[in-house]
Design a protein around this nucleic acid. Structure first.
Lengths: 245, 245
DNA sequence: CGCCCATTTGAAAAATTTCAAACGTAGTGG
DNA sequence: CCACTACGTTTGAAATTTTTCAAATGGGCG
């Protein structure tokens, strides 16, 4: 993996999962000039306040959006897996209002704004699909707001696990109630608005209740129904197509 | 106010504030068939789970997005003033993952998806500007997540007031540190993830500290700098153009 | 005037944080 | 192979923030 063309094929597969693309549209996507960039944990793809000239398509690894406040406070805004485009909005917003960091070693395919703009101007259908990606993103933000505002820590964490499992399942990265979960408790804390101490306690409760366990950085769901109930989960917001579970 | 054509002129003005529109593009927007709909508080423009066939352009009044959970819990996701399009994302997502309600009596101009799709297919520049609207929305969601996750009640409420003042100022609805603020304490509570009791106490603290007061459903900011500091406000996320304050 | 609704206040309870220390584990270098 | 270190996790106890419950207050309006 990692050749630019393969990254673009993955993008095509992702877009096609929503709506068909003509051969002409596929060709145009394949012609996008993409360069590969590797990012290590503790490095950023882009920083808060930057005005990027490229969009990054995540090819491999986990990345996350975040904002920093005073006194080392950090808020994680979203997690990203292969196929995601965590700074796609820079195409139309110019200045980034958050950073994008790497949780694990990441491979990104960088696509110049200029070419994306040309592509979307020529192919409204492709534009609509990329637009849609950013709209799903916004739906996830809305759901996180709801979680943080109206769920206790237990349900909030359960909800995040449901989301991350289903999103990975949808792109073939998870199956059998088992999925990669490289987050540290610090990351969970900064994503849910809690402290690591409390995360530790609530994870213990989730384990004691036999909903989940961890095995070598993998989440194992032991009782999907009860996890789902604890989270008051409603998958509508993920806007996945073939929804089975 | 309220004739469909005037609503569309307002939309044009809003879009133009970001990037110029050609005369042809303006004409195409003016040709959109819009129908007017009035919504009273306690009524919804659209409900969670619906598959709308129109997008609503808010012409007058305040509306809000929200989600409901068990036991009467409600989370407000955003507030909207004239010029906003709180269900624009339905154009590409199909199923709504939240409801849109009216805080005050509202006037909406309803534009059929079908015509919006035709417009955006024909005019990529217009598509980009509408896309951008949804991206600013997402930026606001990100900031709310940060507020809810990493700010105490005092700063969270201060932050919301900063945002609502600046957004109204940007579209000419506010000036002189004074703006309409029709929210009840219940709405503030459901927007910030707090309870009305706590909202009441924190508002008292904000008043006692001489940051703000209310006069006939208007917010009056007495000390912008200190409100701003209490909120740890950074206006980047609003992606406003002529930013003065 | 009386009623409805929103707001305020008080006191106790709950959720979560803070601070501090202990524990575990996976590398690194001797 | 062991000691050492770094980092992440766990645990305990006290403090803080916020909620809950309950009652009182206040304003607007028919």
């Amino acid at each position: 993996m990692a050749a630019p063309t393969e990254a673009l094929e993955a993008l095509i597969r992702k877009l096609v999962s929503t709506s068909a693309l003509t051969e002409e549209e596929r060709q145009a996507i394949r012609r996008l000039p993409a360069t590969i960039r590797h990012i290590n944990p503790s490095q950023d793809l882009v920083e808060d306040g930057e005005r990027p000239s490229h969009c990054g398509l995540l090819v491999e690894g986990w990345s996350y959006r975040y904002k920093l406040l005073d006194e080392g406070r950090r808020q994680i805004l979203s997690f990203h897996v292969a196929g995601d485009t965590p700074d796609l909005q820079s195409l139309h917003l110019g200045t980034l209002d958050h950073g994008v960091g790497a949780l694990t070693p990441c491979t990104f395919a960088l696509i110049p704004h200029e070419h994306l703009r040309r592509l979307t101007a020529a192919f409204p259908n492709v534009a609509a699909l990329l637009w849609r990606e950013t709209l799903v993103d916004a739906g996830i933000f809305r759901t996180w707001i709801t979680s943080m505002g109206r769920r206790l820590a237990y349900g909030r964490i359960a909800h995040l696990f449901c989301e991350l499992y289903l999103r990975q399942e949808a792109v073939g990265l998870a199956a059998d109630l088992r999925c990669p979960m490289p987050l540290r408790q610090t990351d969970l804390a900064d994503a849910t608005g809690l402290t690591t101490v409390h995360i530790s306690r609530v994870l213990k409760a989730l384990r004691d209740d036999n909903l989940i366990t961890f095995e070598r950085r993998q989440l194992v769901v032991h009782d999907w129904q009860r996890l789902y109930d604890a989270a008051e989960f409603d998958p509508t917001y993920l806007h996945l197509h073939s929804f089975t579970r």
